[in-house]
Design a binder for these strands. Structure first.
Lengths: 339, 339
DNA sequence: ATTATTTATGTAAACGTTTTTATTGCAATA
DNA sequence: TATTGCAATAAAAACGTTTACATAAATAAT
C-alpha cells in the first residue's frame, strides 16, 4: 500500500557524527549564529560540503511554524488565462530569488476547490500566500488574514479585513479603451463583462459607463452582457450580441479570454474587423500583434503585478507588523488595428 | 527578523485530550486502522469534526518519507509556453483529485535553476516528480530516478536510466505537417527548430526530412534554423529566413512560441500568408482560429499528456516495483488557412 | 585569589505525526 | 484454576530541525 523511498538525505546528525560534535553546533554553523569557534566552524563547513548536506525543509517548517525561505502558496482562479500566467511568472521570479518554493493552486473559479486548496496550504504551513480570491467577501481568505497568515491579494481585494493588495486601475483603463472607441466614432458600444461579482469586472463596467457618458453616448442595457470570464462565455455572449436586431458596432471585451472567444465568434460569422464590428480588449498578450486583426487592447502589467505582490508578501513575512498597503498599477492602451 | 504566526492548528494531541484517549488511538481512527472500538471511533470522529481538526501534512511528510496524498513536484521548462500550461492543467486536475498538492518549478530553460529547484524539491520530501528535463542526459534527474524517487518524464525522455515517460509522436506529427505542405505544392520548405539538443526538436527534424524525401524535395540546409524554443528566436530566425536571397515559400515552425514569433515577423514585413509565405506550426492553441490567418498546426494533446503523466506517477508511487512504461500519444493535424 | 562574565559547546525538549512495542482486561481454552 | 489468545488501548520512539537551558572552560573584574 504505502511506499518507501530508498533514497535518504544526509541529516544534521550524520554531519555531527562525522565532525565529532553535537547537532546543535552544526545547526549553529548552518544558521550562522554567533558563538561558535572559528576553527570548529571551518571544520564543520568542510564536512557539510563533502557530505553535500542540505537542510531538510520539511523538518524546518515543522519546527519553526514560519521558517525563512521556505514555502509560499499561490492561489489563482484560472491558469489558462495568460494574464495569470504572467502574474505567476512575476511571483516565481521573486520567490526563486528569495529561495521560496511555490505551491500552485489553480481553483478554476470553483469556490469548493478554493476552500480545499486553502486547507491544504494551511496544513502545509506555508509562510505566506498570494491569492486572487473568488470575491471580496471570501470568508476563508479573510479568516486566514485575521489569523495572521501573511497574505497579499492580487487583481481583487478583500473588503472585510485590512490586507495588502496589488491592483491595476481597472476603471481608468476601461475608460481609456471605451473613450478611444467613442472618439473613433463608434456609437453602439457593447461590453462583455467577466464574472459580475468581481470588483475588477464592476470597475471596468464603471469605466465603460464613464466613457459613454463623457462622450454623450447612451448606454444600451441590451449591449451589456455578463459572463464568467472564460473563453466560452466570450464565444457565446458575442454571438448573442451580434444576433441582436440592432447589433453593436464595437465591443469592449472584459478580459483576455473573452476577447479571444469574441474574436472566434466574429470570425465564424465572417464579419470584417473593424469594418463590420470593432473590438477592443482588456488585457494584452505578447502575441496580440499576430491576431486577426492585430488587437487593440488595454495592457495590464501582469508580470509587474506578480513581482510586486511577491515582494510585498516577503516584506510582510519579514515584518508582520507593518501597516498594510495597496499598490495600484497603471494600464496602457496598445493601439493596433481592431478598432 | 523571523516571524511568528499567531494562528495554530488543532493537533492530534488536542483531540486526544478532549477525547480522554491517547494520540495513538486518534491517529488510528484517522487512518482507519482496524482494532479500534466502534464506540471510541464514533466518539473521536465527532470530536474531530467539532474541533475541525485537519492533519498536519508537514508532520506527516516528516514522519513518513513518502506519505500518501501529499506533495508532487512539477518541473517545467517554460511556463510562458501555452503547451506546458495545458500540461500543467492536466497534471493539476489529477493531482487535485488525489489530494496531492503541487510544487511548481519553472526553470526557464536554465540548467542552474533546474538544479536548484531539484534540490528544493528533494528537500521538501516530495512524493513524486513530473519533469521535462533539460536534455536526455540530465544528471540530476537521472540520479533522482536511480535513488528511487518516483518520476515521470514528459515531452522528453532520459537515456541513461529506465524511467516512465509520456511523449507524443513527434516524428510522425512533423511528417504529417510537412507532407501536407509538400502535397500543397510548396517546394522550398524551411524548418525553424527549437533547442536542437532536445529529442523532440530532433525528432521533428527527422519527420521534416522524411517528408521532404517522401515527396522528392531537396533539403536546403540554409532553410533549417536552430533556435532556443522561445518567442524571440521565432522572430529572429524567421527574419533570417525571409531575408535569404532565395527565401522559403513555406515554414514549418518547431513549436508554439516559434510559430507566434514567426507570425510576428511575417506580419511586420507585410507579407501575405499563405500567398507569399505559408506557415504551419507544431502545437495548436485553442485560439489558433483567431490568428491571422487561422493557423494550420499539429495538435499535441497537451492536457492529456499532463493527465497521463500524473496518473502514471501516482500509480508508480503506489506501486514502486512495477516495470517502467512509455506512453506515446498521437498528434492531429488541424487544418485551417495558413498554408 | 576569588568571583563574575563571556565563549563554546552539549543536552534535551518541542514541532505533529505514525508505528512498533508494551500493557491492560477479558474471554476462551485446557 | 491457570494459561493462552485476543482486542483495545497506551507508551514511546522516530522523522530532522531549532532553541532554551545547562555546563564547562577561559577570560575579565574585583
Amino acid at each position: 500500500m504505502t511506499t518507501e523511498n530508498v533514497y535518504k538525505n544526509i541529516s544534521l546528525k550524520k554531519v555531527a557524527e562525522k565532525a565529532g560534535v553535537s547537532i546543535a553546533t552544526v545547526s549553529r554553523v548552518i544558521n550562522n549564529s554567533p558563538n561558535v569557534n572559528p576553527e570548529t566552524r571551518i571544520k564543520i563547513e568542510k564536512i557539510i560540503k563533502d557530505l553535500k548536506y542540505t537542510p531538510n525543509r520539511v523538518a524546518k517548517r515543522l519546527r519553526n511554524r514560519s521558517s525563512s525561505g521556505s514555502l509560499l502558496g499561490v492561489l489563482i482562479p484560472d491558469i489558462q488565462n495568460p494574464f495569470y500566467v504572467e502574474v505567476l511568472r512575476g511571483i516565481e521570479d521573486v520567490a526563486y530569488k528569495n529561495k521560496y518554493a511555490l505551491i500552485m493552486c489553480n481553483f478554476a473559479q470553483d469556490e469548493n476547490k478554493e476552500k480545499l486548496y486553502l486547507d491544504i496550504l494551511q496544513s502545509e504551513s506555508i509562510d505566506g500566500l498570494i491569492a486572487a480570491p473568488t470575491h471580496e467577501h471570501d470568508q476563508k481568505v479573510t479568516n486566514l488574514v485575521k489569523a495572521g497568515l501573511p497574505i497579499v491579494c492580487v487583481d481583487r481585494g478583500l473588503v472585510d479585513v485590512d490586507v495588502d493588495v496589488v491592483l491595476v486601475e481597472n476603471r481608468k483603463g476601461a475608460f481609456t479603451a471605451v473613450d478611444y472607441l467613442a472618439k473613433k466614432g463608434y456609437k453602439r458600444i457593447a461590453y462583455i463583462s467577466g464574472i459580475p461579482k468581481l470588483p475588477s469586472s464592476r470597475d471596468r463596467e464603471l469605466g465603460f459607463r464613464d466613457a459613454l457618458e463623457a462622450n454623450k453616448l447612451s448606454v444600451f442595457t441590451e449591449l451589456i452582457k455578463y459572463g464568467d470570464s472564460r473563453h466560452d462565455s466570450g464565444v457565446r455572449l458575442c454571438a448573442e450580441l451580434l444576433e441582436l436586431p440592432n447589433p453593436p458596432d464595437a465591443i469592449f471585451a472584459g478580459n483576455n479570454l473573452i476577447t479571444l472567444g469574441a474574436l472566434e465568434t466574429i470570425h465564424k460569422k465572417g464579419l470584417k474587423i473593424p469594418g463590420e464590428v470593432a473590438i477592443i480588449g482588456f488585457d494584452d498578450m505578447y502575441w496580440s500583434i499576430s491576431l486577426n486583426p492585430p488587437l487593440t487592447a488595454v495592457r495590464q502589467p501582469a508580470y509587474e503585478i506578480g513581482k510586486c505582490a511577491a515582494e510585498q508578501l516577503i516584506s510582510r513575512i519579514n515584518n508582520p507588523g507593518r501597516p498594510t498597503s495597496s499598490m495600484i498599477l497603471k494600464t496602457e492602451l496598445m493601439i493596433r488595428n481592431s478598432c
